[in-house]
Each structure stands twice: as C-alpha cells, then as structure tokens.
Nucleic acid binder design. Structure first.
Lengths: 306, 306
DNA sequence: ATAGAGCATAAACAAAAGTTAATGGATTTC
DNA sequence: GAAATCCATTAACTTTTGTTTATGCTCTAT
C-alpha cells in the first residue's frame, strides 16, 4: 500500500480542523471514511499522526511533518493546474522559430506587431540557411519553421501565408535594364548569374523555370549571402534572381534595376511548417493564425498576398 | 478522474528516458501499461505531454510543466519518507518538559548528561508551580511532565524514576537541632511551620502523615517559594518540611539543620507523566528510559534510588 | 446518571486503478 | 522489401482504493 492524494487531502482537512467529524462535513464524506483513510495513511507512514487526549485531537511530531509535506504537495499540484490552465488561455512564454535567410527582410515586420499584441511571448528567431533549417525541422527543435519550398519525404504540416516574388536584378546601367519588351529566357542564358549555394530554394526554383524550356542559367559566381549577391549585381559583375522583399532600399536609391524577364516575377509562397507529430503550443498556434490571417496585410504590398 | 502518484512516477520515468519502452523496463511494467497511464495523465491534464516526431519523443510545453511539478512532488515525498525514518531512529528535535518547582534542583543534573549524549535534541524545560503544571498536563502541552504526586481522575501514564526525601529543617541553633533521640510527631505540633500554598505536593504529604496519628501541624506562615521558606527557617522564624534535594548548599554552609523527627525522611517518588492518549515521540521515549534507568545513579546518593 | 458527541472497527459493496496479452500502425534499420 | 522496434489500442482481468451502514467505546456536558 502507498499513500494516495485523496489520503493527503483528507489528512490535511483533519489536521486543519483538528476534528474527524468537521473534516467529514467539509469533504462531504462520512466520519468512518475519514477515520479509515487516516488510519491507512498512518500505516503507510509507520507513525501515528494524531493523538487524542480526552476529546481533543493533537498532531504528533510525525503528523506535523506529514502536514508540511501535504501542504507542499497539494499546493504544488494546484500551481500545476494553474499553469496548465494558462496554457489553454494565455498566449505567453517561449516561441522558437527558425527561418530561411531571405525571410529576415520580412519576419521582423510580422513578429513585431505580434509581440506588441502579445507582450508576454518570449520569441527566439533563428535565421539561417536552408540546410540548417532543415536539420532543425527534422530534429523538432522549433515551434515553427518559416521557409519557401517545403521538402518532400517528411511528414510535415505546412501552410502558405505570404507570397514571395522573385525577380531578376542588374546594375541600373546594364544594357537590359532599359529594355521595355519582355526579355526571352533564352536571352538570359547568355548573362552571367550570381547565385546562392546548392540547396537554396531560390536556386531550385530558377533552375526549374529554365529547365521547363530546356535551358539552364550560366552560373558565374556562387556567393554565400544575399548581401554579397546584391553588392555584386550593383557592381555590374552579373545578374541575379533575388526576392523582391530584400532590396527595397537599393531600388529606392537607384542602385539596382529589375529586369523585365519572361516568366518573372516568379511567385513562390512562404510557408510556416512543423512536423505532423508535433503538438503545437497555444502560443505557436496563435502565431500561425496571425501569420495566415494578417501576414499579407502587414507587409502591405499586393504582391505579398496569397 | 484525477492524477495519481503512480502516474507521476511513470510519467517522470518516460520523460527522463524519452522512451516508453525504456521506462517500462526500468519500472518492470509492460509498455502498454506505460502508454495507458501516460494517456490518462494527459486526459487529466487536458494537454498532450509528449510529441512524437518519427521515432523520437519530445516533451511539449505542458509536459515540461508537468515534469517540473512531478520532480517537486516526488522529491518532497522522498524528503517526507526520510523525515519519518529519522523519527524512528534519530533522537533529535524538540523535547518539551514541564516540571514542578522543586525539581529545578535536580532536573538540570539529569537533562545535562542527556543532552550531552543526544546533542540534537532541542529541550524546553518549563519549571512552575503544581497548579500550572496540571493545566499543561490536561491540555497535552508537553511531551513529559515531572511531578511528585500524580493526580487522580485523569487518564495518565506515569513512571517513578527517583525518590524525593522530605525532611524537617530548622536553624542550627534551634533547641531541637541538638536532639539525638527521634522527636515525636506530637512534639512537632507545638512548632511553628513555614509552608507552601494549598495544593503543594509536599504540603499534602505532610498533612497526611500527621493526620494518620490524629495530629495536624501548626501553620504559622504561608510562603510562595522554596527560597523564601529556606530563608525563613535559617532566620529562626519556624521549621519547615522541604525536599532534601533543595538545600545542599545551606547544609554544607552550616546554615540549616535537619531535625531527627519520627516518620522522616518522608520518601515520595518523582514521576514522569503524560496523558495515556499521547503518542510519545521517540525523543520523549528515549528521555523517559534515560530517567528510569539512570536518574538515580546520576544524582548519586542512595536516598535518590527508587 | 444519562444523553450527546466524537472516533474506531467490521462488513459489504462499488468504483477506480493498474496490469497483461494480443494486435496493429508507423518508422527505422539492414 | 523485410525485419525489428516503438507506441497506441482493445479487451479482459486483478488489485486497490474508497465509501457507506451498522455499531460500539469513550469522554464530556448537563
């Protein structure tokens, strides 16, 4: 036999009232029910917990120890109940997100308003390349993952929330920058392309677009970051395909030009993703709903819409 | 349905191992037993506690909360077990004693050696008059009570442990102080007696001794303390009956003489007493055994023996 | 001295807890 | 592709927990 939580509740009521009968009234049980439960608890403890002198009830030393433990345990379980209730109702606590590099241009514009609305959320945004994001996804290291292309072969739950427009950019003085007629894809194969590493979502999408017409781009230089690619395009080293989310400042400053190429802008949705086996926390669920319902609106431009 | 301690133990093992199967091996249960108990705990909590991604198990946020609470509760119950084990084996913690006034001359000589032997005991010795000691006894306010005459009409457990010798004392120049033949009780009725208040154990014993021969003492002055009585006897105001435990210094200094009176020394035992309904703590039991087995020896003189 | 109140015990019974055997689905490893 | 492994579910069963009714003992109050 072991002690049970019901025994602890009963013992605590008796100890607080110093009366079996009062405790039975409080707990809506009969007095023999109280008596037998206290007896069982005493057997389990190996000590008497009460002493009776005349008609008065007292706690023994062991009873004092038991009462302290009781209050600690029952109080801790109350706290647990409250914490679990919070998890149904409150939007608070940690929210861990991994996002593919390009999303660093827009994720803060989504996360900021969300955190203002839910100030008790503790965000952790990890922006890294796609390969690392995939590892974290497989290892269930995040609440949500923000990525364009969702990998196949994994059991995932994914929802598109905004559209990503990929465009071809070049230096403003590039010859094709003034071309008003759409530039054939075939023409573009003659251009030097500045590109990201193998495995990049953007790279895959562009390769597929050209492959559909039996073409392939001319990779001139592989660069490790979006910034390096922009700098190279601005310097006239070559052209590139990048997300329209990521170079607004450079456009406004007249440092980059968008080329009018057939098939562009290449619209790819951004997804929020998590493993199907995952039980998303309430905070994670609310953030996902927030992305789906208000992401496009917050980012403002119509080409962000799903 | 509520959660049970067994469910907490099972959940903690799964959470620590991150495996139902490992937990079942550790707890010598079947894997379906583990699975169903975790399921019941999740139902009770109203939240999933684990999420499974591929073959890997993870704790959810609610699971993390539950694990913290589990460790707290199970740890607290372990501490309780240890504290209760201590109460069987260790002699430590509070020991509250009330004692009638006269015992102040010998109780420290008993308590001192006991506390040296059991240094973790926390003693509380309350020395007061008999009436107050009786109130504390009835109200179960002490572990043990030290008194001479045990009251009737209460359901008490009492054990004699030393003898108290009551003798008649007078100033050294009192005429009867040089009398070598035993002094008849009748002769003493002509002496002025300095006495304690009504209800004093010593008073009762002396009254009974004289009443047995159809005599009664001549109360001259009622004094409120043992010290006052000794001072009065030394000053030649009258004679008194006091405990031989209480005037050693005055004897040695030649300030008081013991009269050789018929029927004296009047031997009365000292008892340690507690209500029969009381469950004496281990520390209280050990102290009582100490008094019974070594009290007389520690006080040295043969007339202390039971 | 008697009635009332409070706790202890026994017997009987219902409900809950706990477990196993059998089995199936999904994932990982070979 | 097959075997091994891990978790989920169902049905059946045992054990434990929990409670009530009936009753008795003891103590206190009147």
């Amino acid at each position: 036999m072991h002690l049970t939580l019901q025994q602890l509740r009963i013992f605590e009521a008796v100890a607080r009232n110093l009366s079996f009968t009062r405790a039975s009234e409080e707990l809506y049980l009969t007095q023999p029910a109280i008596s037998i439960q206290v007896k069982r608890l005493e057997e389990n403890a190996g000590h008497p917990l009460f002493e009776q002198v005349g008609k008065k009830l007292f706690l023994t030393g062991a009873g004092e120890e038991m009462l302290k433990a009781c209050r600690d345990v029952l109080g801790r379980l109350d706290d647990l109940d409250n914490a679990l209730q919070d998890q149904h109702q409150q939007v608070r606590g940690p929210l861990t997100i991994s996002a593919v590099t390009t999303s660093k241009y827009f994720m803060p514009h989504l996360l900021g308003p969300f955190l203002r609305e839910y100030p008790e959320v503790e965000p952790r945004l990890n922006v890294t390349n796609r390969a690392k994001v995939l590892v974290r996804l497989k290892d269930n290291m995040d609440d949500l993952v923000i990525m364009g292309q969702v990998p196949e072969g994994l059991d995932l739950s994914y929802h598109p929330f905004i559209n990503n427009s990929l465009v071809v950019v070049a230096a403003p003085d590039h010859p094709l920058a003034r071309e008003s007629q759409p530039i054939a894809l075939e023409r573009m194969t003659q251009e030097r392309f500045l590109i990201r590493e193998e495995g990049s979502g953007t790279r895959s999408a562009v390769d597929r677009l050209f492959a559909a017409q039996g073409l392939r781009i001319n990779p001139y230089m592989e660069l490790g970051s979006e910034e390096a690619i922009k700098q190279g395009a601005m310097a006239g080293i070559g052209v590139s395909v990048i997300s329209s989310l990521s170079f607004r400042l450079e456009m406004t400053a007249g440092l980059l030009a968008v080329l009018n190429v057939e098939g562009f802008p290449l619209i790819r949705p951004w997804h929020c993703v998590y493993p199907k086996g995952k039980r998303l926390s309430r905070t994670g669920q609310v953030f996902q709903e927030f992305l789906l319902s208000r992401g496009a609106e917050l980012l403002g431009a119509s080409h962000f819409s799903v």
